[in-house]
């Protein structure tokens, strides 16, 4: 698609709602194949920034590309090349596992026969194949989240946006979930993930910390800890968020 090593390149991206500046001139790059952690307190502007990157919302000013397409002009093309999993569980409870996969695969234009093969393979890998015709609503939350991730990557997107994917899930499932993320990353998919859990931040290749609409820090977890002289990412986050004006 694009020869550059950066799958996301953003310069001075800004979003204003009236007089409120939700996202304030953020500039950063995400490398292809990287697991990029996008952190920040509630209200810091993470979701707004992510919506702009996904082509859901127009930036007020600034520029950027995602998967080689312009975030201002080519939102529709961006949508075709990304996967998305929202913080709320986002599959249909009253459809079966297979039907959910067929629906979302179909939306992204995966051909029927190939879709069947990929879906079956994924269900095998997740060991869900026995439950293929079970309504998603009756599955445990951990299963649903894994399935949602599988659905988000079904069409082999170049980059997947995960908006707090592990909210409310037990630690064991969270671990398994991260194994899936690693696997996808090792196959070349870029992962862009927001999270509340600071231990998860350690799993990322690089992390950006957002405070009051601005990116306050961006580096590998190890470097961040070193430069803030902190023992854990949790501590780094506390130091950065101390001066936050917004928040819950």
């Amino acid at each position: 698609m694009s020869n550059t090593d950066f799958i996301i390149q953003v310069k001075d991206l800004t979003k204003q709602f009236g007089t409120f500046t939700a996202v304030d001139h953020i500039t950063f790059e995400v490398e292809r194949g990287e697991i990029f952690g996008f952190l920040g307190a509630n209200g810091a502007g993470k979701t707004t920034a992510m919506r702009m990157l996904c082509g859901l919302s127009y930036p007020t000013s600034g520029s950027g590309t995602v998967a080689g397409f312009d975030v201002v002009k080519e939102g529709e093309k961006i949508k075709r090349h990304i996967g998305y999993m929202s913080q709320r569980f986002s599959l249909y409870d009253d459809l079966t596992m297979m039907e959910n996969m067929e629906l979302f695969g179909g939306i992204y234009g995966v051909k029927s026969r190939e879709l069947k093969e990929r879906a079956t393979a994924l269900l095998h890998k997740l060991e869900f194949i026995e439950e293929r015709d079970t309504m998603v609503g009756s599955l445990p939350l951990g299963w649903k989240q894994k399935l949602a991730f599988a659905v988000a990557t079904l069409h082999r997107p170049e980059i997947v946006f995960l908006d707090e994917p592990t909210g409310g899930v037990d630690p064991i499932t969270r671990r398994q979930f991260w194994e899936m993320i690693y696997q996808a990353a090792s196959e070349g998919t870029t992962i862009f993930v927001t999270t509340h859990y600071m231990d998860e931040a350690e799993y990322c290749n690089r992390i950006s910390m957002m405070v009051d609409g601005k990116i306050k820090a961006l580096d590998t977890p190890a470097n961040l800890k070193k430069s803030f002289n902190a023992a854990s990412m949790d501590q780094v986050f506390r130091i950065l968020a101390r001066d936050a004006q917004r928040g819950d």
């Binding site: 996904c54 082509g55 859901l56 529709e76 949508k79 075709r80 990304i82 998305y84 999993m85 929202s86 913080q87 709320r88 569980f89 986002s90 599959l91 249909y92 409870d93 979302f104 939306i107 992204y108 234009g109 946006f161």
Partner: peptide, 13 residues
């Protein structure tokens, strides 16, 4: 309400 609308809107549909 369930959040599936977001997923649909991010899709190319």
């Amino acid at each position: 309400e369930t959040g599936t609308m977001d997923v649909l809107l991010v899709s190319p549909v």
